[in-house]
Measured scan of single mutants.
Amino acid sequence: ATNIVGKVKWYNSTKNFGFIEQDNGGKDVFVHKSAVDAAGLHSLEEGQDVIFDLEEKQGKAYAVNLRIK
């Protein structure tokens, strides 16, 4: 899925991951530091509006192509 809109539920910059809540009511999506770095960001803030693509690997969904809304 592409261009999914959501809000950062939480992001832990020490542990380098967090979760994004989808605006469409879907399951929360894992986001890793690598996606944050690829977006040219240092971190994510709770409540921040983002747009992302959804990829699945080994049955787990995660956010890629992250951008600030």
Rank of each mutant, 00 (worst) to 15 (best):
T2M: 12
T2H: 14
T2R: 06
N3P: 04
I4A: 09
V5K: 15
V5W: 04
V5T: 08
K7L: 05
K7P: 02
V8M: 03
V8K: 00
K9L: 08
W10C: 04
W10M: 09
S13T: 14
S13Q: 11
T14L: 13
T14F: 13
K15G: 05
K15I: 12
N16H: 15
F17P: 00
F17I: 05
F17V: 03
I20F: 06
E21Y: 13
E21F: 12
G26F: 10
G26H: 13
D28Y: 06
V29N: 02
V29S: 05
F30D: 01
F30S: 02
V31Q: 00
V31I: 10
V31R: 00
H32C: 03
H32I: 02
K33W: 10
K33I: 06
K33V: 08
S34M: 11
S34E: 07
S34N: 14
S34K: 15
A35N: 05
A35W: 04
A35M: 07
A38P: 03
A38E: 14
A39Q: 05
A39P: 02
A39W: 03
A39R: 04
A39F: 03
G40R: 08
G40Q: 09
L41R: 09
L41S: 07
L41D: 03
H42T: 12
S43E: 09
S43I: 11
E45Y: 15
E45R: 13
E46H: 15
G47R: 14
G47A: 07
D49G: 15
D49C: 05
V50H: 01
I51T: 14
F52S: 01
D53L: 03
D53R: 02
D53P: 00
L54F: 11
L54G: 02
E55F: 09
E55P: 02
E55S: 12
K57Y: 14
K57H: 12
Q58I: 10
Q58P: 10
Q58D: 12
Q58K: 12
Q58C: 05
G59L: 13
G59T: 08
K60L: 08
K60Q: 10
A63R: 00
V64K: 13
V64I: 15
V64C: 04
N65C: 04
N65Y: 06
N65L: 06
R67Y: 11
I68S: 12
I68Q: 13
I68E: 15
K69H: 09
